[in-house]
């Protein structure tokens, strides 16, 4: 059970990244590679708030959230907006990788290349739950990510703006003709994704420490979660993330420390080979 708890906690990280990807993907059709790097920067900002400035957790979390949201908005303005009128190509792929790398570079430059421990808002005393032990921070992380994923899913079905986001993903021009400001929607999606990344950073850091290389792994595993769940599906991404987390933990526990990444990679290959639209995705017919 301890292994399962560990898997769910790791999975929560991947789900979190997948959620961020989906938020942006739905509104502006771009996979924001830098999303995981936003979380990484968030962990350092949380460190600054909590340790350098000595702020209480209740102040540090919203402050980090806002700061990362601002970074995400800046990213949209400089890395996505200029490409909107250009057709095809993988420019957004290159620019978002660029932003991620830049954020990694800034983190390494400012806070060094060694992992930094961010104080957890919870006591380090582990809990025993359902026959396994789990850190309080990890449990909170799992629950919050679950709530976030389900909440966003419901939000996109129940609120007008969520509906507008789904509609824009389906038919951008028709959405514009209905009076939707698709640009603002895209910008809003980046802001939201940044806000989420920042708000969760404290809890992420409680599990991983703050480290400039954190972004790469998270970016890739988060993408595998989407590949499993089907792009644009919040629930799918949530399930995908937790599934990979469990797979990771079980492989690490029963096969060996070096195997989890290789196994997840193999699963990724298998998914692309057999169900390229994700386990929950449908097929689309191509038009000329």
């Amino acid at each position: 059970m301890t292994t399962i708890w560990a898997g769910l906690a790791t999975g929560a990280l991947y789900s979190l990244v997948a959620i961020g990807y989906n938020v942006v993907l739905l509104a502006s059709g771009v996979v924001n590679f830098a999303n995981a790097y936003l979380i990484m920067i968030g962990t350092f900002l949380a460190y600054v708030c909590l340790v350098d400035w000595g702020l209480p957790v209740a102040a540090a979390i919203p402050l980090t959230g806002l700061a990362v949201a601002v970074i995400a908005v800046v990213e949209e303005r400089i890395a996505i907006r200029p490409l909107l009128n250009r057709q095809g190509g993988h420019a957004a792929l290159i620019t978002t990788v660029g932003v991620g790398t830049l954020l990694g570079g800034i983190a390494a430059k400012v806070w060094g290349t060694e992992p930094v421990r961010v104080p957890s808002p919870f006591s380090a005393e582990p809990l025993t739950l359902l026959g396994g032990t789990i850190q309080r921070n990890d449990l909170v992380l799992i629950l919050l990510v679950l709530a976030l994923g389900v909440g966003l899913h419901l939000w996109s079905r129940r609120t007008l703006l969520g509906l507008a986001s789904l509609a824009t993903a389906e038919n951008r021009q028709a959405a514009q003709a209905r009076g939707l400001n698709v640009r603002a929607l895209g910008l809003g999606a980046f802001a939201l994704a940044g806000l989420i990344a920042g708000l969760f950073a404290v809890f992420v850091a409680g599990r991983t420490y703050a480290h400039f290389h954190l972004g790469e792994t998270l970016a890739l595993f988060g993408f595998v979660a989407i590949a499993i769940g089907g792009s644009g599906s919040q629930l799918g991404g949530l399930i995908g993330g937790f599934a990979i987390g469990l797979l990771y933990a079980v492989t690490a526990r029963y096969v060996g420390d070096s195997y989890p990444q290789i196994v997840v990679f193999a699963v990724f290959l298998l998914i692309l080979l057999t169900r390229p639209r994700g386990l929950f995705g449908g097929a689309a017919e191509r038009q000329v």
């Binding site: 509906l163 028709a174 959405a175």
Partner: peptide
């Protein structure tokens, strides 16, 4: 050009997007 994956009612509600309240109300 309707939103084919959405219901008739959702389509109409999206048509009325500009009737939405301003500010926070529209988000939530």
């Amino acid at each position: 050009q309707v939103f084919r994956q959405r219901t008739v009612e959702d389509n109409l509600l999206l048509g009325g997007f500009t009737l939405a309240r301003s500010g926070l109300g529209r988000w939530t």
